[in-house]
């Protein structure tokens, strides 16, 4: 498996990097950590590249290298990578320009597979889309954005599972909240959820929410299957069938001390574009990390 962790700054991306690396470790996945810098106007591309190349003559780093350096230091400090050959220092000379708007360096992983540090420039959705396609990414991990459109675009247009890290605090005791229904993505969400729960030693709350008081047999069967799956996996769990409004119940149950895992909606992209979807609303409204499995 391969994970992509998008980071933006030292100040705000700490929780995203920490949670992302811990989850990647749980899956024993290869990891790419990407920093996406601002889009450069087409009128100025060559001029900006010329200025950035000139900075190298002064041994000054371009925008974003300091953020990758900080990520590198985090990886060394937490023993995610072997860094003996570089003496624990981030060597910017090893950043290889692979495209006009992309450069990368690969590091040997210790607790995960290979770790790549990538610097990109441009529209963030376009750049993440390109990176996901280029490296066959399974899960993209990113910090929460205040822009509603951003979460929509991530879930709608990025062809991988999306983990939105919102309000994560390493000192808080978390539980895992699994949203279970009859949708095809639920089974994959359960598998992902179990891996995360095992790695973080979390209790799992598998919740099935119905709009009406009468539970459809599909929902009941899904809940039973989840119960069986979690029991076989040996995870401490509870299974609940509740009725009410999906979003308000999820929000209420999750609070700020759950990690939500749920399958992506199977509605048509056109419908999702105009009317939204449950995963999108969960990511927007809930005040905790949420993994949307595709």
């Amino acid at each position: 498996m391969k994970f992509l962790i998008a980071i933006g700054s030292k100040e705000y991306s700490g929780p995203t990097l920490e949670l992302g690396m811990r989850v990647a470790k749980a899956f024993n996945a290869a990891v790419d950590i990407v920093y996406v810098g601002d889009k450069i106007s087409a009128f100025s591309t060559s001029e900006v590249i010329l200025a950035q190349e000139n900075l190298e003559n002064w041994e000054l780093d371009r925008q974003g290298v300091d953020v990758l350096q900080w990520a590198f230091e985090y990886l060394v400090e937490n023993k995610y990578i072997h860094s003996e050959s570089d003496g624990g220092e981030f060597n910017t000379d090893k950043l290889v320009q692979t495209d006009d708007d992309r450069c990368e360096v690969h590091l040997e992983g210790r607790m995960t597979q290979e770790v790549g540090l990538i610097l990109r420039n441009g529209d963030i959705i376009q750049q993440l889309r390109d990176e996901v396609k280029r490296s066959n990414i399974d899960v993209t991990i990113i910090g929460a954005s205040k822009k509603r459109r951003m979460i929509h675009d991530l879930i709608q247009y990025i062809d991988s599972s999306i983990f939105v890290v919102k309000n994560y605090d390493r000192d808080r005791d978390y539980k895992l909240l699994l949203a279970v229904n009859d949708a095809p993505n639920t089974k994959k969400a359960l598998k992902y959820g179990v891996r995360v729960a095992e790695a973080f030693e979390l209790d799992v709350n598998a919740i099935t929410i119905s709009d009406s008081k009468e539970f459809r047999s599909d929902y009941r069967n899904a809940s039973k299957w989840a119960d069986k799956f979690l029991r076989r996996a040996g995870v401490d769990h509870s299974v609940n069938l509740v009725h009410g409004k999906f979003i308000s119940l999820m929000n209420e149950t999750a609070g700020d001390d759950h990690i939500i895992v749920m399958g992506n909606s199977t509605k048509s992209p056109l419908t999702k574009f105009f009317t939204g979807s449950k995963p999108l609303t969960v990511c927007e409204e809930c005040n905790c990390p949420a993994l949307i499995v595709k």
Binding site: F43, S44, V48, R62
Partner: peptide, 15 residues
């Protein structure tokens, strides 16, 4: 604006 000229873009690229 940032996009007004290459010089504005160059200083913006410093972050």
């Amino acid at each position: 604006t940032i996009v007004a000229s290459p010089t504005c873009m160059i200083i913006h690229s410093s972050g």
